[in-house]
């Protein structure tokens, strides 16, 4: 991990976030993100006890630690219940056409 954060990288993150940044903002974020990397690097040095090593990408760690204790395996029965009327939903839509929400044309598929 380099200490320099490139403008390209900042632009990429802005694109992923769907945020438009000015040139000044990009410069600002170059510095901020570089600072953050340093701070977070310390995190990666923290020694962990054996049972917490390994697969950190799953919420199993969360299951052992915090919210999910006796709320494990919470499932609901298969019963249909619509709870918002079409009209109420569309009333706050910035642009609509009949019973649809309307957006500008989608040029390319995203997935």
């Amino acid at each position: 991990m380099t200490t320099d954060f490139s403008r390209e990288s900042v632009k990429r993150i802005a694109e992923l976030s769907r945020l438009h940044l000015s040139e000044d903002e990009i410069t600002q974020y170059q510095k901020e993100l570089a600072k953050i990397i340093q701070a977070f690097n310390a995190l990666s040095q923290v020694p962990l006890p054996k049972e917490l090593l390994g697969d950190a990408r799953s919420a199993l760690g969360m299951a052992k630690g915090i919210g999910a204790d006796d709320s494990l395996s919470r499932m609901c029965s298969d019963e249909a219940k619509n709870s918002i009327a079409t009209h109420d939903f569309l009333a706050q839509s910035p642009d609509r056409e009949g019973v649809f929400v309307r957006v500008p044309a989608i040029l390319a598929s995203s997935t």
């Binding site: 249909a80 079409t86 009949g98 649809f100």
Partner: peptide
């Protein structure tokens, strides 16, 4: 979500938050 799963219903009717 608990909203209804059905094909062919009027658009934006089988909805919930």
């Amino acid at each position: 979500s608990h909203a209804k799963n059905a094909y062919g219903d009027s658009p934006n009717s089988n909805i919930d938050p």
